[in-house]
Every structure is written in C-alpha cells, then in structure tokens.
C-alpha cells in the first residue's frame, strides 16, 4: 500500500538481508522502475516502458516475465466498488470465542462479499471488510450470515460513509 518510489526504496534497502531467508529473488533498479511504470498504468506497452527507460523491449519483456513468474508482481484489473454496484462497505471487528480466530476467519473468508480478513492484535480478534449492494443485504450478511458462524461472539461494525482512497498496491500473491 505504499507508493512505488517509497516501496521501492524500502525494498531495495533491505533486499540483501531479506532475500537470505525467504528465497525471493532481489529486485534491482531496473525491476523497480518497471514496477513503478506499471503501477501508474498497467496497460502500458513494453515498448513504451522500454523507451522511457532507455532499454530495449526484449529486456523489459524478460524482466517482467521473471517478476510475474516469481509472484513478485501481478498486473491486474481492479474493480471500483461502487461502479460494480457495491455501494456499502463495512469494516467490521469480530470477537471470537470457543474457536481459533484463524479457523473462524477462514470460514468468514469463504463468503464472496467479504473482501478482506485479517487476524488482528487489538480490541478484536479479526478485522474484516464486507461489501453489499444494499443496506438490506448488509444487514443480512452481518446479522443473518456472519453472526451465525460458529465461534463468532460479537461483531463491531462500522460503515464507510465516503471512501477517499482505496488503492491496494501490496497484497499476498
């Protein structure tokens, strides 16, 4: 979720150490610049990236394929929630009892309308985000579906009034 430049710097600064343990290949400046270009516009042609960076197209193509094959980067279409009809977004804290947070989270994660599930440290055991097309559907999902999952003790919902920014740049791939 950080910007290209900042994330690039952070990753680059730690690359030497970070790669020893986790087996992910290191990113060099060229990789970082390709990623930065694709964060701005995922449909930009390899040829245009190459021209901007003063490389040849084959280099860009090979680099990008390597990044994708190693699951370091994916270029995808992200769908706008409201344009897809989901006018309601609820960040919900979940308090779990009698079952592990991970198990309950995994069951909640099976629901299509739940777009994120995190095991959390803090007041609640899980932080989830639920989307719905109508308030009625949201009510049904929270009270009728999620509340009835085994181990869900209490829900602490909030509802987004206006989304100012939602731009995922990092994700488990």
């Amino acid at each position: 979720m950080r910007t290209a430049t900042k994330a690039g710097k952070r990753t680059r600064g730690k690359a030497a150490n970070a790669n020893q343990g986790d087996g992910l290949p290191a990113l060099d400046d060229v990789d970082e610049q390709i990623i930065a270009a694709l964060r701005k516009n995922g449909r930009i042609a390899n040829r245009d990236i190459a021209r901007e960076m003063g490389l040849n197209e084959a280099t860009v193509r090979t680099r990008l394929r390597r990044l994708e094959d190693a699951s370091m980067v994916r270029v995808v279409a992200m769908r706008d929630l409201s344009a897809m009809g989901f006018g309601y977004l609820a960040p919900v804290g979940v308090q779990v009892k009698g079952r592990s947070a991970g198990d309950v989270g995994a069951e909640i994660a099976e629901l299509e309308r739940v777009i994120t599930v995190n095991v959390a440290i803090g007041t609640h055991d899980l932080e989830i985000q639920v989307v719905a097309e109508t308030l009625e559907e949201m009510q049904h999902l929270l009270t009728g579906v999620i509340a009835k999952i085994d181990g869900v003790e209490r829900l602490f919902p909030s509802l987004a009034l206006k989304v100012f920014k939602y731009n995922p740049e990092w994700a488990p791939l």
Partner: peptide
Amino acid sequence: RYSLGQNFIKHDYRWCALV
C-alpha cells in the same frame, strides 16, 4: 486507536475505489 492485522487470511486486491 489502532488494530493490527497480522495474518492475511483473505485480501482481495481486485477491489479498489477510483476517486
């Protein structure tokens, strides 16, 4: 106040808001 999400069980990165 903050809560820390540590373990990503699900994170559907295909959603965003284009504002």
